[in-house]
Amino acid sequence: MGTTSAIVGAYCLAGEIGEQFGRGAAEVDSSNVAGAIAKAFAAYDARFRPFMDQVQKGVGEDGSFYSSSLLSSSFGVSLLHLIAGLASFFKLNIGAMMLKEQVKNWDLPDYEVLRA
């Protein structure tokens, strides 16, 4: 979900900045640019935080799954290669079983200002 989060986050940030500044340079109030950027960041955080909370739920901060002693040993790496080889031979999609890209109760916002 890293790439998805980056793209969705960039889209939301561009949309929120666009909401504050409009489509053209003529609409920008140069006396309050810093205030408008601060409002855009606050709106971005309020809109994007529920998405990221769901994406990050269950991810260990210490990376415990990936840094376990089994996966860092030669036996663990060999075992992982064996499992991947068997999954490939039997055409099993183990990636779909492991990935959890289900974000519920959150819809991608539609920013009118970003439409061409």
Rank of each mutant, 00 (worst) to 15 (best):
Y111K: 00
V77L: 09
V59I: 15
M98P: 01
Y111Q: 03
F48L: 13
G76Y: 06
P109W: 02
S73E: 09
D110M: 00
F65I: 13
Y111H: 07
F41D: 10
S64L: 07
N32H: 07
G24F: 10
V103S: 09
N32M: 10
A40R: 05
F48Q: 10
C12G: 00
G9S: 06
V55A: 11
R47A: 10
D45M: 00
F51V: 11
S78I: 02
W106S: 11
A34H: 10
K39S: 15
Y11I: 08
K39M: 08
S88I: 00
S68W: 01
G22V: 09
N105V: 02
M52P: 01
A84L: 14
A10Y: 06
S73Q: 06
P109G: 08
E61A: 13
K104M: 08
I83D: 02
D29N: 15
M52N: 07
F48S: 05
A42W: 01
L86Y: 10
P109R: 05
M97W: 15
V33T: 13
A116I: 02
E27K: 11
S5A: 15
A116W: 01
S5Y: 04
Q54N: 04
F41E: 08
A36T: 02
G2D: 13
N32R: 15
T4Q: 14
A96C: 00
V8H: 06
A36V: 01
I94H: 04
L92S: 03
